[in-house]
Simulated scan of single mutants.
Amino acid sequence: MRGRKTFRERPGRAVFALVAACAMGAVAAPFAVAGASSQPAARPAADGGPGDLLLPTPEAPRISDGPYAGFQLCGGPAGDPVVTSGSPTLAATLEAVAPPGTVESGGPGPRRKVVFEVDTAAGEPVSHKQLTSDTSHDAAYQLPDGTLADGAYRWRVRGKDGATESAWTAWCPFTVRRG
Rank of each mutant, 00 (worst) to 15 (best):
T93Q: 14
A46Y: 03
A14W: 11
V83C: 13
T6A: 00
G76Y: 12
A29V: 13
A149K: 14
T147P: 00
L54V: 13
G51S: 10
K129H: 15
D145N: 05
F116G: 02
F174Y: 01
V118W: 13
A121N: 03
G70R: 11
D150C: 03
Q142N: 02
T6I: 03
P77Y: 06
G70D: 13
T164F: 10
T93K: 11
M24K: 00
A42C: 04
W155V: 02
E104G: 08
V103H: 11
G151D: 01
G123F: 06
L90H: 01
V82A: 12
K5S: 07
V126H: 12
P67R: 15
A170H: 09
L148G: 05
Q72L: 06
G86R: 01
G109Q: 06
T102D: 02
G3F: 14
P100S: 07
V103L: 11
G70W: 11
G49L: 04
G179M: 11
A23I: 10
G101I: 02
A91W: 09
A170T: 15
V33K: 07
T102K: 00
A78D: 02
H137V: 01
S37D: 09
A78I: 02
S127C: 06
A167P: 01
A91L: 05
S105W: 12
T57Y: 02
P99T: 07
F31H: 13
S136W: 09
A23L: 15
P173E: 07
P30S: 10
V27T: 06
V157S: 09
V15M: 14
V114Y: 15
A139H: 09
D47C: 05
A163F: 04
P99Q: 05
A28I: 13
S87E: 06
L73F: 14
T169S: 03
T84S: 14
S136N: 08
R178P: 08
A60M: 08
F116L: 10
T135H: 05
G123T: 12
V97C: 07
S166F: 04
V97L: 13
V83T: 09
S166Q: 02
V15N: 08
G51Y: 13
R178F: 09
W168Q: 04
V19D: 06
T164L: 15
R112H: 14
D52G: 03
P56S: 04
V157T: 06
P30V: 07
R156S: 05
V103A: 12
G107R: 01
A96S: 08
P108A: 11
C172W: 09
G179T: 15
S136E: 03
G76D: 08
Q142H: 00
G106A: 07
G49T: 13
G76S: 06
L148A: 01
R177W: 03
Y141W: 15
S64D: 03
V97K: 08
K5A: 04
A28N: 00
H128W: 08
G70S: 12
E165P: 00
R43N: 01
P61W: 07
A28E: 08
P61D: 00
L18I: 04
G79L: 04
Q39V: 10
G12E: 15
A17P: 00
A170V: 11
G159V: 10
D161M: 05
A78N: 10
G151R: 06
F16N: 12
K160W: 04
A42N: 09
P58H: 13
S127A: 15
A98E: 15
G86A: 06
L53T: 10
T132N: 08
T84M: 07
Q142A: 01
D145F: 14
P125G: 09
P125R: 14
P88H: 10
T93R: 14
P144G: 03
